[in-house]
């Protein structure tokens, strides 16, 4: 059985959902050890140990690992990965930042965004913004290094009994040329866009930052996260980390409600794996309706408040 090392994306206290999804892919490839780099990140390590498919959790605990810096984590990860056949990371911005740096140190080619396992060395991945799917094979005798496309795998369940957590030390000397300064998070108390089961997103059709408040209200009555099209972000209605699509977040909620979004191909790339897509748009010919499971043509300024009311009474 192949030995698999999975890099965990976490915030010290809890795991990012990208980790629990990537674990689904990792467990299909072999026996998985989860690497948690942190400083006193015992809670995140325990969260990883509680997941089905985790054989062992390696908590690499040192003060320098307090911030998610690729230049510091990659050399430790590469050293740790020496004994493994497969090294995986979720395709979160953290995984995408760290893994190629580790791959280069290992002298191994990397597969980005595994979306399907064909066999133990062969994988499907999207190219051209998801408009083409290519199948690639890792040559024999070569370590498999890959990121896992988050939207293509479901989160693993909780394990019956937790896996052991081992706190380990690496003696790799770490550079001091990179300093983490700050994180300006957005979103507040709403569910995280990347992991939410329901997402309400607004586009240029909203017309202004003020009107976008309707989207937040509807989202709150559904317990949903809020997303936006690139057009809405570029117009300044909402910050960029809410952008869904090719250059934003690729998401796979159970329910996606697109309001005033025309459905440019770059946007559709971001929601292809959603369960049910609802489109509300005044233009009945908008491309979003070609992919939507349920379409409602009409004035969003009338429909959205009515929808919210119907939810409240239902």
């Amino acid at each position: 059985m192949a030995k698999v090392l999975l890099l965990a994306d976490h915030n010290g206290d809890s795991l990012n959902v990208s980790t629990t999804r990537a674990l689904r892919c990792a467990a299909a490839l072999g026996e998985v050890d989860v690497a948690v780099f942190g400083s006193g990140a015992g809670k995140a390590a325990e969260a990883a140990a509680a997941l089905q498919g985790a054989n062992r959790v390696l908590h690499v605990d040192r003060p320098e690992n307090a911030s998610p810096l690729a230049a510091l984590i990659a050399p430790q990860l590469a050293a740790l990965a020496a004994d493994y056949d497969v090294l995986l990371a979720p395709s979160s911005t953290f995984g995408k930042d760290v893994l190629p740096r580790a791959a280069a140190l290992l002298g191994a080619p990397q597969i980005s965004d595994i979306m399907e396992i064909v066999d133990e060395r062969t994988f499907k991945r999207p190219i051209y913004a998801g408009n083409v799917i290519t199948t690639v094979r890792v040559p024999a005798e070569c370590k498999i290094v890959a990121t896992v496309r988050i939207a293509s795998f479901t989160a693993v369940e909780a394990a019956a009994t937790p896996a052991p957590v081992e706190t380990i030390a690496t003696d790799a000397s770490l550079p001091d040329h990179t300093q983490w300064i700050s994180l300006q998070a957005s979103g507040g108390d709403r569910p995280d866009l990347q992991s939410a089961t329901r997402v309400v997103a607004g586009g240029r059709g909203l017309g202004s930052e003020e009107s976008f408040a309707m989207i937040f209200q509807l989202a709150d009555s559904l317990g949903a996260a809020v997303g936006a099209s690139r057009a809405a972000v570029d117009a300044g209605y909402v910050p960029n980390d809410m952008q869904v699509g090719q250059t934003g977040k690729i998401i796979a909620p159970d329910l996606y409600i697109a309001i005033g979004i025309s459905g440019a191909i770059q946007h559709m790339t971001g929601i292809k794996d959603a369960g049910v897509i609802v489109a509300i748009n005044k233009d009945g010919d908008a491309p979003i309706f070609e992919a939507a499971d349920i379409g409602l043509v009409g004035d969003l300024f009338q429909i959205v408040p009515e929808f919210e009311k119907a939810l409240g009474s239902g």
Binding site: P109, I127, C142, F289, E290, A291, L296, V297, A310
Partner: peptide, 27 residues
């Protein structure tokens, strides 16, 4: 080492579903 390409295919497509004519029908 090189990753070997075994070919390309179009992505699985989503086909459009139904259109409804009211919020009640949507719900």
């Amino acid at each position: 080492p090189r990753l070997e390409s075994l070919g390309c295919e179009p992505p699985p497509s989503r086909s459009g579903g139904v259109k409804v004519d009211s919020v009640d029908a949507l719900v």
